[in-house]
């Protein structure tokens, strides 16, 4: 049955997909292309390219879209649910536990010690974004965009929405 297949196909990557979108794409590809053969590799590549051109998390775009292609809106919901629900349940459970014992030294320590690690992770992703940007559009364009967005968001306190939209327009005109 297609709903069950969709559920399994997106449940497995949701459980073993560590490390966000990029780590996750091969897992989905394995289910969709190799295992269930819902799409050819070429089609999957097209869908992936399309998903990358749109905003939002890649995994929900992929699961929702593939689910819809296979079984309409119910399929989209099944795939989305299979993809997000398991880790979400775990999240609610563990954070509930943390909240319950938030005054214990163990939990206080956890919150405190984990903060620099979160900082390091964010710093690494920051670096990757700048690195790929420099390789892609060069150091000058990257510097201009960086200084401009830093100024607009941190100095003028402009909402990121405007800065993001502005950069999209800028990128569009760049290659006109």
């Amino acid at each position: 049955m297609i709903y069950w297949d969709l559920f399994v196909a997106f449940f497995i990557p949701g459980i073993i997909g560590y490390g966000g979108g990029p780590a996750y794409i091969p897992l989905i590809q394995n289910e969709v292309v190799n295992h269930y053969q819902w799409m050819s590799l070429q089609q999957f590549g097209d869908v992936l390219a399309l998903a990358n051109a749109l905003p939002g998390p890649i995994t929900t775009k992929l699961s929702g879209f593939v689910g819809y292609q296979m079984a309409g809106w119910p399929g989209a919901f099944v795939a989305l649910f299979a993809n997000t629900a398991p880790s979400l349940f775990a999240m609610v459970f563990f954070l509930g536990l943390l909240k319950r014992y938030q005054h214990s030294p163990a939990v206080r320590n956890m919150s405190r010690m984990v903060r620099p690690v979160v900082g390091v992770l964010l710093a690494i992703i920051t670096f990757q974004f700048f690195d790929s940007s420099i390789q892609d559009i060069g150091i000058l364009q990257t510097a201009v965009l960086t200084v401009a967005s830093l100024f607009l968001m941190e100095r003028l306190r402009l909402h990121p929405a405007w800065v993001i939209l502005g950069s999209l327009v800028y990128g569009l005109l760049l290659n006109w």
């Binding site: 051109a53 964010l122 920051t126 940007s133 892609d136 364009q141 968001m153 760049l174």
Partner: peptide, 30 residues
């Protein structure tokens, strides 16, 4: 349009903006 340089330019130009947002957040955590 997926291979069009314009679409590509859009996704490229937004990257430094995201980088700045992430960097500011990382700094805040430290």
């Amino acid at each position: 349009y997926k291979d069009s340089p314009r679409v590509h330019g859009m996704t490229a130009a937004v990257r430094p903006v995201v980088g700045v947002m992430l960097g500011v957040l990382a700094y805040g955590f430290f």
